[in-house]
């Protein structure tokens, strides 16, 4: 690691101030991506501003919606009886991120702010059309992810929580990378306000809704409706672990499995 100044902010305002006052400041949430990046000397911030000391950024509120504080670790979401009751697919997704130790430290705010193409949460943010609350505004889930590691967040903007509408039903199916355990493909299928929404992560540069799959499922959530449906592979990622064609295939398979979960 390069040298940097570590700060633990006690308020959003202080965090913003510390970062804007630094030559090159970054926010630290759970650190599951940032710290490995720092260890490899792939980033050289002058200042690291830890958000863990800020009151109110952690915790889960379940009412008409499910609101997950930005600093809430994945394990808390996975293990929350309230989340399991309201959006079981969200708890299920959170329980499959990384490994147990990652889930104990990694946070939803850090995960979505990073917009790693292979992260799991973005599938839910997109499929459930969550609202991303920040210290400045609210951002609609489907407008949040712009590209590889690029979000709608402005410099210095801090995610404070993510609010998920409670869908009539939803399911998440993941095909993990056998080495890293990130998603090669993750698909969340949700029925929300009478419409079917399909959020896909892992496959493209960032999470997206699949128009093809949504169209096929518009008539009803049945696996049979997906028979013969394919997803174009033109924009999909291709790497050592999966070609674009294979990813496209897996998107359809995972979608079918998510739908099958709902039927089952």
């Amino acid at each position: 690691m390069y040298r940097f100044n570590y700060h633990r902010a006690s308020s959003l305002a202080q965090a913003a101030e510390l970062r804007s006052g630094a030559d090159d400041g970054v926010f630290l949430a759970g650190g599951m991506t940032l710290i490995p990046t720092l260890k490899q000397r792939l980033a050289a911030p002058t200042d690291v501003v830890d958000l863990a000391g800020i009151e109110g950024l952690s915790g889960i509120t379940v009412g008409d919606t499910v609101t997950v504080g930005a600093m809430t670790p994945h394990a808390d979401v996975a293990g929350s009886a309230a989340v399991q009751g309201a959006i079981p697919a969200l708890a299920d997704l959170a329980g499959r991120i990384g490994d147990a130790h990652v889930r104990n430290r990694g946070t939803i705010g850090g995960s979505i702010a990073n917009s790693d193409p292979a992260a799991d949460y973005p599938a839910a943010v997109v499929a459930l059309n969550a609202t991303v609350h920040t210290d400045r505004r609210d951002i609609a889930g489907e407008d949040f992810f712009l590209d590889l590691f690029e979000t709608a967040l402005e410099p210095g903007e801090i995610v404070t929580s993510v609010e998920f509408p409670v869908p009539a039903r939803a399911a998440y199916a993941k095909f993990p990378n056998p080495a890293s355990r990130y998603a090669i493909v993750g698909v969340m299928v949700a029925e929300l306000d009478g419409a079917v929404r399909v959020g896909v992560t892992g496959a493209g540069p960032c999470a997206f809704r699949s128009a093809e799959l949504e169209a096929a499922l518009a008539g009803g959530l049945s696996a049979a409706a997906l028979d013969g449906v394919s997803v174009p592979d033109g924009n999909l990622n291709s790497d050592l672990h999966a070609s674009a064609a294979y990813r496209a295939h897996l998107v359809a398979v995972m979608a079918r499995r998510a739908v099958a979960q709902l039927a089952g």
């Binding site: 095909f175 056998p178 997906l226 028979d227 013969g228 449906v229 394919s230 997803v231 592979d233 672990h241 999966a242 070609s243 064609a245 294979y246 496209a248 295939h249 998107v251 359809a252 079918r256």
Partner: peptide
């Protein structure tokens, strides 16, 4: 024999991706 290798051996990339 990764999953993609096996999928290809099964004719994967030549088959329609939505096929069961």
């Amino acid at each position: 024999a990764t999953s993609e290798t096996v999928w290809n051996a099964l004719g994967g990339s030549g088959a329609a991706s939505g096929a069961a």
